[in-house]
């Protein structure tokens, strides 16, 4: 199994940290992982993206331009990365702020209202974990128990009290994700 993922959105949405938690969770189940961020002159409100690869085998290139899954969190990223999903691959997006939704019909498109669900949970910071839950429902490449271990490993201890809330957010994402009709 090799899963090649791009996560893209605004800086501040938790794009890079979501990738990091995915990568850490992969480590927890003895997989090979790579995490490669875009690190241009990024700024708050600008775009941020990260390539995460989780695999049973040694990872050759951490740099790839085609993905099994694209997790898209704003319009600019959708415009940039929709075409990079491999045929038959997965595109998961949050419709918040999307004016031109995905059009490809040779891939599977799913939607998760992450921003809205995070507001409903009363904590906008759970946003990225809701998105991650939605992804793991569609592609269970990582077991939930390993996500918990990944969170423990990647968060400083003073933040460990937030782990239950993050796991709740993962579950919300798993429940609320639905197919999108292109």
């Amino acid at each position: 199994m090799t899963e090649e993922i791009i996560i893209a959105g605004f800086g501040g949405q938790g794009v890079l940290s979501m990738g990091k938690i995915l990568a850490y969770s992969g480590v927890m189940q003895n997989q090979e992982v790579s995490w490669m961020p875009s690190y241009g002159p990024e700024m708050r409100g600008g775009t941020a993206n990260v390539t995460v690869i989780v695999s049973d085998e040694r990872i050759s290139s951490p740099i790839i331009h085609e993905f099994d899954t694209a997790i898209i969190l704003n319009q600019q990223s959708l415009d940039k990365f929709e075409k990079t999903v491999k045929p038959g691959g997965l595109l998961l997006f949050d419709p918040n702020g999307i004016t031109h939704p995905p059009k490809r019909n040779d891939i599977k498109v799913y939607v998760i209202e992450g921003a809205e669900e995070a507001a409903r949970m009363g904590n906008p910071k759970t946003f990225n974990m809701i998105i991650m839950g939605a992804f793991l429902k569609l592609k269970p490449v990582i077991k939930t128990e390993n996500v918990e271990k990944g969170l423990k490993k990647s968060l400083p201890e003073r933040h460990h009290k937030l782990i239950p809330m993050n796991l709740d957010a993962v579950r919300v994402g798993m429940e609320k994700v639905k197919e999108f009709q292109v």
Binding site: V27, V33, S34, W35, M36, P37, Y39, P62
Partner: peptide, 8 residues
């Protein structure tokens, strides 16, 4: 690339 990427 190697400076910024994360691996095991």
């Amino acid at each position: 690339v190697i400076g910024q990427m994360m691996e095991k």
